[in-house]
Every structure is written in C-alpha cells, then in structure tokens.
Design a protein around this nucleic acid. Structure first.
Length: 360
DNA sequence: AAAGCGGGGAC
DNA sequence: GTCCCAGCTTT
C-alpha cells in the first residue's frame, strides 16, 4: 500500500493524545449509554454545538430505560434547535429495541450496533471501540481528512471507492491495545490541529511522516466534490389564533423538520401568499381562515434549500377539530411542545401583544 | 451513486 | 458569503 506504518502512526499519535486531549463530558464516563447518546448527538454536529444538548439530554433521560419509557415528544423537546431531528427519533427507537430485545444492555458488537436505527459504520465503530474496547475503526470527517493528508490521497473522498480505501487504512491503523483512545486521537487531531483550511502542521505529531506535508499539499487535501448552492423555496405559514389558543400541526416524520410541531402552511406554489396559505391551512387542518396582517418574514437556510416567505396572523371561521396531527391548544401549553424553532419565536412574540385574538 | 436532512461556528 | 462539522437513511 505505501505510506507510514501503523506502528509509527500509533507511536506518535497516542502520546500526543494523552498529553493534549480535551476534557469533554463523554470522556469522563465509561457508561455505554452515555457514550451512545454522545455519538448520536454529535453526528454531523460540532462539539461546541452539541455539548449543551448532551448535558440537558442526560439530565432528562439519565438511563436508557428512562429514554425508552419517555414519549417521543419529550425527546424531541430536548433536541429542538440541534437539527437533524431524525436522530432523535432513531435514538428513541434504538433505546426501545435495546430495552425490549437486549435487556437494557447496549449491544457489545459492531454488527449488533449497526443493526440499530440511526447507527451506521461510524457510530458503531465509535461505540464499539470507546465503550467496549473492540478493535474497529471509526471514520468521521476528521479522520477522513487526517488520512487523506497523511497518505496523500488526491482522489475525491466523497466517492465510494475512496471511502472504502480510507476505511481500510483506518482499520489497519487502529491500535490493538487502545482502540477507543486511538480513534478519539485521530478525531482530536483533525479537530484541533489537522483542521480544514489552515492546518497547524508544526504542532502535529504526524508532521514528519505526513505525505501531504512532504509534498506541500496539506492545504489542498482532502478533495471533495463541490456542494451546490441551496435553491430558494417560497413558504408561507399561518399564526391562527383565537380565544388564547394556537393552531399547530405535526410535521411528517422523515421529512424536513419531521416530528416537530409547526404552524400550518409550508412550501407554496400558487400566485399569492395569502391564497396559498388559505389553501394549505384548509388541506392540513380542515380549517377555513381569514388571513390577517403579515406577522413576520421567514428567511431560513437549511442543508439543501432556503425557505423565504412570510408568517401571517389568521382567524379561524369555525373552531378547529383536533386530530393526531392537528392541535388547537392554549398558548402556554403549545410552548411545551417540540416546535419548529422559528415558529416558537413567532408564537412567543405574541406575549407582548395587548389583545391576543385581534388580527386587524 | 445521489439526494434528503439543521443549525451554527470559523474564516 | 463559503466550508464543514464524532453521518445515516432512503431513493
């Protein structure tokens, strides 16, 4: 294959990690449940963003049995604001499988972990190696970058063949004695030294054996295919209120913001905001409304699209009928639901309004 | 293989 | 503004 030997990489990396590792909450425990929770929370999420959610999550769900017993809405409520809400649903489902089929014990093999919802190659490798000391790699974005540089891989790392090649290299590198520490050391190096734009090579324990550094290409690797800019999608939502109540709908699972409660409305296709809003509220809730004044604008960027549009205050013609996915509930109670974050803001702003039901 | 799925920090 | 983050699932 070529490139530095696994023994050399380990001999340099592990002492560096022992001396430089950050004190992170999930590194203070050997509890597999706590490690599992951290891995779900941190999928495609920066440590700085995920840490406060980790603390909050474990306070609300101290054990896997607490999590399995809790309603999904409570899990989503803790998750609200973090994004990728399918993770919350998957973690909740995984907890129920573990309690019902594994007697509440986190499965102690890579394959059994992979079979759980929301656990793929990375998360299975991380939990297996960190919580159970099993010698398997854990290849995340950091590890991909470190390996692409150290082994000077100049092909597009987003393709399947190159990803497999990097996984094979990672599998050979993993320490036999300390697989969990080794995997975390690779991630730590990528996060703090071998950073995307300006790697701090003089501080890197692998500088002497890094092929990209030797070629002066460290800033050019890894190569990844360009991400296209997110298209703008027009949206409109209705803040339907009367009698101190708000109309909310459950967004469909698996879709954007899936599982969260939201103001009725969404992506629009007609010629006017108000006409589209009346139609979407009717189809989603069966409620006929009078559309009032514009309440606020919407300008929100997601991973693959941008929502741009408005939220209007509305009045229902008749009292809404509640279903599993439609609620017509008091303002104080709606705030306890897991809500689309910017919809929570829009509802909260009603607090300062003198007459709640006036939409004139 | 490609698309869908959040939000925010760093530059 | 762009890039990318302790990725996985569905199509």
């Amino acid at each position: 294959m070529g490139g530095p030997s696994p023994a050399d990489v380990r001999a340099r990396l592990l002492p560096w990690y022992d001396a430089n590792r950050r004190d992170l909450p999930w590194r203070r425990t050997r509890n597999p449940y706590r490690i599992l929770v951290a891995e779900y929370l941190l999928q495609r999420t920066r440590i700085k963003s995920g840490t406060p959610y980790y603390e909050r999550f474990l306070k609300r769900f101290p054990t896997i049995r607490d999590l399995a017993a809790g309603p999904l809405d409570d899990v989503l409520a803790v998750w609200e604001g973090l994004g990728f809400y399918g993770r919350a649903r998957n973690l909740h489902a995984a907890a129920r499988v573990i309690v019902e089929e594994h007697r509440g014990r986190i499965p102690q093999s890579y394959d059994a972990l992979t079979s759980l919802p929301g656990i793929g190659p990375y998360t299975a490798g991380a939990v297996a190696s960190i919580a159970f000391g099993i010698r398997v790699p854990a290849v995340d974005g950091n590890v991909t970058r470190v390996i692409a540089r150290v082994f000077r891989i100049r092909e597009d790392v987003t393709t399947g063949t190159v990803r497999r090649r990097i996984a094979e290299i990672a599998a050979r590198l993993v320490s036999e004695d300390r697989p969990g520490a080794f995997n975390q050391a690779m991630m730590e190096l990528g996060a703090t030294v071998c950073t995307p734009l300006a790697p701090a090579c003089p501080k890197c324990p692998l500088e002497r054996l890094c092929l990209a550094r030797a070629a002066g290409e460290e800033r050019d690797l890894p190569v990844s295919s360009r991400s296209r800019s997110a298209p703008v999608v027009p949206v409109v939502f209705g803040l339907v209120t009367a009698d101190e109540r708000v109309l909310v709908v459950r967004r469909p699972r698996g879709r954007l913001l899936g599982g969260l409660w939201a103001l009725p409305g969404g992506e629009r296709s007609g010629r006017s905001e108000k006409e589209d809003l009346k139609g979407s509220i009717r189809s989603q809730t069966g409620v006929e409304v009078r559309v009032g004044p514009r309440w606020t604008h919407v300008d929100r960027t997601f991973s693959h699209l941008k929502w741009s549009g408005s939220i209007y205050r509305c009045s229902p013609i008749r009292r809404p009928q509640e279903t599993d996915s439609v609620r017509w509930i008091p303002r104080e109670e709606v705030m306890r639901l897991p809500l689309v974050p910017f919809h929570r803001d829009a509802i909260k702003a009603l607090a300062g309004i003198e007459s709640f039901e006036s939409t004139r």
